[in-house]
Each structure stands twice: as C-alpha cells, then as structure tokens.
Write a protein that binds this DNA or RNA. Structure first.
Lengths: 178, 178
DNA sequence: GCAAATGTAAAACGTTCGTTTTACATATAT
DNA sequence: ATATATGTAAAACGAACGTTTTACATTTGC
C-alpha cells in the first residue's frame, strides 16, 4: 500500500503542474498519463475521474499554501507570498482559475474553492490581529485584497507586484497601529 | 453590409457572455450558434475561427473597459471599477482567465492580453499623475495591485472587496500627497 | 509455489469538439 | 427578372475527449 501513496501523490503533483501550466480543461488525460508515466488504467484506479483529480489537486495545493502562510505579521505574510510565487510560479490562483474554467458547474469543486478562500480570509484576519494585538476587520480586508492583487498582478508584472503590495500593506498597518 | 455589423457584434456579445459565464474552452461552438441564433456557417463566416472569436471578444471587452475608466482621480477609478463589476458581474478578469485557460500557447491571444494589461497599467499611471499633480510610479503600482485585487477578491467576497480597495487607495493617496 | 493483487500497453467505447460541406431558401441590385 | 450575395438547417468530417476494457506481465503475501 506504500506504493499507492507514492503513485497517487506523483499523479497529483503531475496533474497540478499540467493544470497550472496549460489549464484544467486543456489538459487531457492522455497527456497526464504520459507525464505521470502510468497507464490510464492505473491513473483511473487512483484518481477516480478527472473531476476528482482536480479536487484532489486543489486540496493538496490549498494545504501546501496554507502551511506556507503560517506567519505572525502582515509583512511576513507578504514575504511568504513572495517565496510562494517564486517557487510555484506566477500564473494566478489555481482556485479562481478552476472556478473560471468550470463556471461553478461542478459542486465538488465549487465547495473546495469556497472552503479555501474562506480559510484564507480567516487566516488573514488572524495574522492582522496577531500583528496589531487586536482585531481589525477593515485592515484585514485591505490586506486580503492586496494579497489577491499581488498574486494576479504578478502574472504580468512579476514580483514587482509583490513589492508594491508589501509596501502598501506596511503603510496601512502603520496607520492602523497609531 | 449593415447586417454584417449587426450579426458580428451580436455574435461577439453572445460569445463574451458565454465565455465569461462558462469559460472559454468549455463553451462549445454549438452552444454559441444556438445562443447567438445563427447557423454555424454564418458564425464561421463572421468569426473565422474560435481563436479569432476569442481575440475579438477580448478586443471589444478591453475597449469597453478602458472607456469606463476615463477618470481623473484614483477615487473615481475605484468608483468606475465598482460600476463595472456591478454591471458586468464579478467573475474575474477575462484577460487573465483566457491566459490561464490557454497557457499562453496562442500568440494571437497572448499579445491581446499583454497589450491590454500594458494599456491598463499606463492608464493607472496617468490617473495617479493627474490626481497628484505629478507622477508617482510607486503609488501607481500600488493602485494597480489594489485594482487587480479588488477584481479578483470580488469573485468570492463581492463588492466589499471594492470598498476595501478603495479605502486603502485613499489612505495611500493621502499619504503620497503630504 | 501459487493465487491474488497490481501493474502495463493498447485498442475500443461513445461523445463531443471545431470546422466544412451539402442542399436549399430568401433578399437585393441592376 | 435574374444573378449575386447571404442566410438557414443539418449532415458529415476527422480528431480529441474522458473512460473502460481486453490481454498480458509482474510483484507480493501466505
């Protein structure tokens, strides 16, 4: 059964990369079997279906992302985000992208998106509260928008977008602290 | 020839809506012929191909968007953005979405995206310069990130994302002015 | 050492894709 | 009035889609 975990995680990792680089729908199962170096029979035994595979990719991605942003200050949040973008590439949020590609017509996936974005918003609230020493929902919303903006502006402006977001957040935090 | 313009623009408008609501790749040509109420023969005479139709949709969308943000202050920019999202819906940027769906493998489309985002960034620079009375590239980058953030956070947070972005921008502009 | 499990390679499933073609109807211009 | 342009409805194209199946090889547990 150890092999199962190996094969399954290799499959999910391969799927994540292909979905990210070429799009969810544009990535065919044939391409995936080739890239993951396994037969379609094995692939379907482990993944179930393309939709389930997409959901599995989102689950793993979300977990990895949330783990990355276990920080205690807004500035550290943007530092973590910069690392993330540097390591994972700057092709936008895989959750919002799958939402756009499916139009929200797949409940299984829509729920994964909603859960992730809710968790992310909550996490930002907590980081802001930790940084300030008290809750500040207005600032948290601003920081959330800056994160989302950095991630998406980075698609065409690169990591400069992150620098801009980070400096803006610093100003907003300093103002909120006084 | 008047009929051509009519049919072509009806086709492009229909395509824009379907692409926006269901995704570019997931929207089939059959669905488009039905929604635009024309035969596939006519559709192809006017659109050329699906790729050309996607490019045409982007061109029209970009023109309409840029026209909407012909404003002279940062605050007015976010007001215009709010109107845009209210009228057009909150499903993310159609340019970044097509980029994600195609993975940048269609030169015709990649260039349309690049051109639009460059124009947008330039426009934001101009608005900031007009508002402040002088250029301020750093602030302009921050405002750009806030716009992109508002557009994408609005997908799951609605127009509250815009309120957050707008208030953040107001603080940054006030600070830059002093 | 044998049976169950798990793998592969590859063909086949029916469906849908983007696109073209066929056959025919309807306006319009001279 | 007739030729040209432009439309429709619908069948057909080959290719690609997600998925299943067939036939066979390899590992693994008892």
């Amino acid at each position: 059964m150890i092999h199962d975990i190996d094969k399954t995680s290799r499959l999910i990792a391969t799927a994540e990369e292909l979905f990210d680089r070429h799009g969810y729908i544009a990535t065919g199962m044939d391409r995936l079997t080739e890239a993951a170096d396994m037969s379609s029979r094995t692939l379907y035994k482990h993944a179930g279906s393309k939709t389930q595979l997409m959901a599995a990719v989102l689950a793993h991605r979300g977990q990895r992302f949330m783990h990355r942003i276990e920080v205690e200050s807004v500035d550290a949040l943007f530092a973590a985000l910069e690392e993330w973008l540097q390591v994972e590439g700057q092709r936008g949020c895989l959750f919002l992208r799958v939402q756009g590609e499916t139009g929200g017509s797949t409940p299984e996936i829509s729920e994964a998106i909603k859960a992730h974005k809710t968790a992310f918003a909550t996490r930002v609230q907590e980081i802001v509260a930790t940084d300030l020493g008290q809750e500040n929902p207005v600032l948290a919303n601003q920081v959330l928008v800056l994160c989302e903006g950095a991630i998406h502006a980075a698609i065409y402006r690169g990591l400069d977008a992150l620098t801009a977001a980070r400096s803006a957040a610093a100003i907003l935090v300093a103002r909120a602290r006084s």
